[in-house]
Amino acid sequence: MTILRNPPRRGFCADEFALRVQRMQSILRAEELDAVFVTSPSNIRYFTGFDSQFWESPTRPWFVVVPREGAIIAVIPEIGAPEMARTWVNDIRTWPAPCPEDDGVSLLADTLSAVPRRFGRVGAEMGREMALRMPVSDFLDLGTRMPEMKIVDGTPALWQARMIKTEAEIDHIRFICEVASDAYIGLPDLISIGDTERTAVKRLRADMCARGADSVPFMPAISGPGGVAQIVCGPQDRVLTQGDVLFIDTGATYDGYFCDFDRVYAVGSIDDAACRANEAVWQATELGIQAARPGATMESVWKVMATALQDAGSIGNNVGRLGHGLGMQLTEPPSFREGEETIIQPGMILTIEPGMEYAPGKMIVHEEDVVITEDGAHLLTIRAPREMPVIS
């Protein structure tokens, strides 16, 4: 029987959004920016609460301006005004989109030019793990319409704000992590030897949605004898066979927030080498959770896990990092990697994701989601069992 957990209240109160804007404005002042404007669904939703399935249409651009002081401003197509008016945003400016000859560019330029000016600099989503959701030609045109303002990369300021989650955000992510954990635990009852990777994903995805997930946009599944060669593609119609390892990663959402963690299963019995590799990766995960404490650098935690994997006989890891940030995007900064000097702080939500290739084409990866508190990392997921669950 499927046990349903009690979800947190959908949406956020006006005070929550005011807190986010206040934090952003404090950062803007420190970074000497008069405003930042955002175009991507996650950033627009972060500051306003506005969401729409219409994001699937690339026809119309959408903009939200967060000034250094004062209220935020939505500069959006007319079609979105009624729903934006249901949010906490009061200043809503529209144009009759789509209008390719001027799709909000002049209106956005006028809006940015009118914000209180001190530094003559406006930030935009130009950098790490962000993207402009507007035509590049329009973005370049925007700069010519505001000769008194310089458009610069606002990404560091945006991530500085979003990297630390509020208690309400943490509650959302905790819920979806628990939903996905419950479904992972129940998967061996839903599939058996002889089913395909694709069947496993269909049943697991349906179970997660039945338990309370809004959607499961990310679910690669890969299987292979003793391990897998990669972790980002699939599923295929490959039949699960005695001796396989089945890897499934999941990015399920609740009210705009992701979980991101994997589980590995033994299909029947697996050989001793795969068991030893699984034990090594499980232990590296434990070490990563213990090391992820406030004040540590992301690189220092990476080194703890990487050293353990190397000592266990790892011959490689094509993932390129051993975990990352998590929130309204499946992956967010920072990354557990060499050279990443970001300081871990309370309120961060991170994935602990060690993996090792123990033989050519045979890789084992584990992943858990944690929230950083004053006294260390606390699991949001239900910890994977030390030995692989068996599909029979």
Rank of each mutant, 00 (worst) to 15 (best):
L28Y: 09
E69I: 13
P333E: 08
V267N: 02
V115P: 02
R20K: 14
N90H: 13
T351C: 13
D102A: 09
T59G: 05
D110W: 06
G186R: 11
P294V: 13
N6Q: 14
P346Y: 14
G355D: 01
A359S: 14
K150Y: 01
G325N: 06
E299N: 12
R198A: 15
E286A: 11
W282V: 03
E341K: 14
L350T: 03
V122E: 04
E167D: 15
S26R: 14
N90D: 13
I193P: 00
P77M: 11
D91N: 14
I391S: 07
N318E: 07
S269P: 00
G251N: 01
E31D: 14
G70Q: 09
A85D: 05
R68G: 14
V152K: 08
M126T: 10
Q160R: 15
V371I: 12
R386M: 12
V36S: 04
M126I: 12
E125Q: 14
A109W: 05
G251H: 03
Q290L: 12
G227T: 04
A266T: 01
T381M: 03
E338H: 15
G323T: 01
Q310D: 13
H172F: 10
A210P: 00
A229P: 00
S223Q: 04
T111Y: 11
I248F: 00
E169P: 04
T144K: 12
I164E: 07
Q290N: 06
W95L: 06
G224N: 01
R86G: 05
R133V: 10
T331R: 04
M130C: 06
S335K: 05
P41Q: 14
A266H: 03
D141A: 15
G194C: 09
V267K: 01
M126Y: 13
D138A: 13
Q242P: 01
R205H: 05
R23Q: 08
G251P: 00
S392W: 03
V304T: 13
Q242Y: 00
A157Q: 08
T196S: 15
A291S: 13
P135R: 14
I27T: 11
Y184F: 15
D141I: 02
E387M: 11
F119I: 03
A71D: 15
V21R: 13
G323N: 01
L107N: 05
F336V: 04
D214R: 02
I76W: 06
A312R: 07
P235E: 03
L142K: 09
I76D: 01
T253K: 13
T331F: 04
I173S: 08
